[in-house]
Design a protein around this nucleic acid. Sequence first.
DNA 1: CTCGTGCTTGACGCTTACGTAAACGTAAAG
DNA 2: CTTTACGTTTACGTAAGCGTCAAGCACGAG
Lengths: 138, 138
Amino acid sequence: MHNSQVPAETWSIAELAAEYDVTLRTIRFYEDRGLLTPERRGTTRVYHPRDRVRLALILRGKRLGFSLDEIAKIVDMYDAEPGEEGQLVYLLDQITHRRTELEQRRRDIEETLQDLAEVEARCHADLNTLRNRQAASS
Amino acid sequence: MHNSQVPAETWSIAELAAEYDVTLRTIRFYEDRGLLTPERRGTTRVYHPRDRVRLALILRGKRLGFSLDEIAKIVDMYDAEPGEEGQLVYLLDQITHRRTELEQRRRDIEETLQDLAEVEARCHADLNTLRNRQAASS
DNA sequence: CTCGTGCTTGACGCTTACGTAAACGTAAAG
DNA sequence: CTTTACGTTTACGTAAGCGTCAAGCACGAG
């Protein structure tokens, strides 16, 4: 296996914050809530690729409107150890649950996009009416 | 036009609450925030079809993770009066903005669903491994 | 008249997800 | 040595989105 030359990159808290456009406070807060567990070098936090991935997942979860508690459950599913059968079945159950939620959200989005398209069409129509009137009165 | 026989249905706060599975407090809160403006008969709130539609839109917005302030802007777009050109242009701009957001969310959902599918596959694989081992040791 | 039912308005409380100092440590640069 | 940059913890503040009483009106049934 050729993983001898991967640099095992790490990041400072400020680097991660800049990359994902969040504040240091936010990142520390996620750690408080158990979502991130950076290494400590002395007192300083050192972030590994795993933390980076998790942060990305957290932010995506946030965009989707999940609470941090929900996100915690979801993110922990990603690096769950195989474990025993009960755990796996529970995990599959959670997955089904999340999928149902996401599909509902997707439907909501489709509907909203359609609604927006209608409002937009109305706007354009109104604009045309207005401009035609202006042209007629000039 | 044959709108002579539509009963112009109305609802009480409790009816709306039951229908959409929210509390009375929630509905009143939305009114406080200017999202709903029911008629008053004496002191009692009377909800018209328009309010019903708005409540549905609000709840959909909530499922999508928008804040009430954002939802207010969106919902108000629906029954905006034609108005002047500046207003219309602003509205179109807002629509573009919301659409961009929603499309980002849709991408997030697609990605998450794919990720979940992968985790699920891993789960099933692990379960099979486990069960094969059990079968072998029996 | 009284009771229950449904409505009303405050008003305080709580959780979430951070913002915002305050006060301090460390290490390199001028 | 002092400044500057970057990090740390502790702790109070806040906006959002309600929950949860408390206290009171209105109205039909008994």
